[in-house]
Write a protein that binds this DNA or RNA. Structure first.
Length: 276
DNA sequence: TAGGCCATCTGGTCCT
DNA sequence: AGGACCAGATGGCCTA
């Protein structure tokens, strides 16, 4: 939201419903865009769109719209009211989704500022996923290093940090991104995915530290040449000695972690069983 | 001008 | 039955 810039300034991502309603009215009057099918009724009672229709056509239209219910003939006004209500709900839903997306953008290690274009939705999701994976890896790596420092004897391999009560023990939570890496917490192992992603180079260069850059990401965020060599497309396998920070060098290309599907099923139970 | 991204509308499906 | 969720279609805006 706040990170939005020129792009959204001219076209708010979440316009007020009233504005939308007005714009819809204008659209209805001026355009009747193709997206608005013949069933379009998102407009006030005196809908100019319907003026051109014969009574029979209007009736057929009403019947078609009401067919899912009880085939009762609804009045034009009722149909429009229903349609308006449904549209409004959908707008609200999408608005909430955008708000959540903005919230996600805010916590991402990505530049926030007036001169930085907002991440696209797909870029935000991919970046978030990679960020989570990287943080998980950082945690595992940190655990490993601490264990090495404290030796191998005793509880939990000799290490019993004060935060034992708050931090997870050796085994990652099932379904957690780090779970599949638990058996080989080596320095070099998959962290960032594939190729597909390519966001600002500052995006993940320093996990936990919000990258500051005034450089705008490429417009084609996901299609940078050399897929994978890009900022996010590359994995961060060379962990900085002493810093714990991943290395963004181009050598750190890694395959995608194999637990994507399990993650999905955990995060979205409905989708897991969704046969649609 | 083409392509990317987005908002919106719409109908279908699933869930409560 | 009503609402949530989803995907397809479409047009607008913006950038390269």
């Amino acid at each position: 939201m706040d990170s939005d810039t020129s792009r959204v300034s001219s076209r708010p991502s979440s316009p007020e419903v009233d504005d939308l309603f007005l714009s819809t009215l204008k659209k209805s009057v001026h355009g009747f865009s193709g997206a608005v099918s013949s069933t379009q009724s998102d407009s006030p009672p005196d809908n100019p769109l319907l003026r051109g229709l014969s009574a029979a056509e209007e009736e057929a239209l009403a019947l078609r719209m009401a067919s899912k219910k009880d085939r009762k003939l609804l009045s034009e006004n009722e149909l429009q009211a229903i349609r308006l209500k449904i549209n409004s709900r959908e707008r609200k839903r999408m608005h909430d989704l955008n708000v959540a997306m903005d919230g996600l953008r805010e916590v991402m290690p990505y530049a926030h500022g007036p001169s930085v274009r907002k991440l696209s939705k797909i870029a935000t999701l991919l970046l978030a996923r990679n960020y989570i994976l990287m943080l998980s890896n950082s945690l595992e790596e940190m655990k490993r290093l601490v264990s090495e420092i404290y030796g191998s004897g005793g509880h939990h391999g000799g290490f019993h940090p004060a935060a034992c009560g708050t931090m997870t023990h050796a085994g990652p939570v099932p379904g957690h991104p780090a779970a599949s890496h638990a058996s080989h917490p080596a320095v070099h192992h998959p962290l960032l995915p594939p190729a597909a992603v390519s966001v600002s180079s500052a995006s993940l260069s320093a996990p936990g530290i919000s990258a500051v850059t005034s450089v705008r990401p490429h417009h084609g965020l996901l299609k940078a040449p050399g897929a994978g060599a890009g900022p996010l497309g590359g994995g961060f396998q060379h962990w900085g000695v002493g810093t714990g920070m991943p290395c963004p060098c181009s050598m750190c290309q890694v395959p995608p972690p194999p637990h994507v599907s399990s993650m999905s099923s955990v995060a979205m139970p409905r989708l897991a069983g969704d046969s649609k």
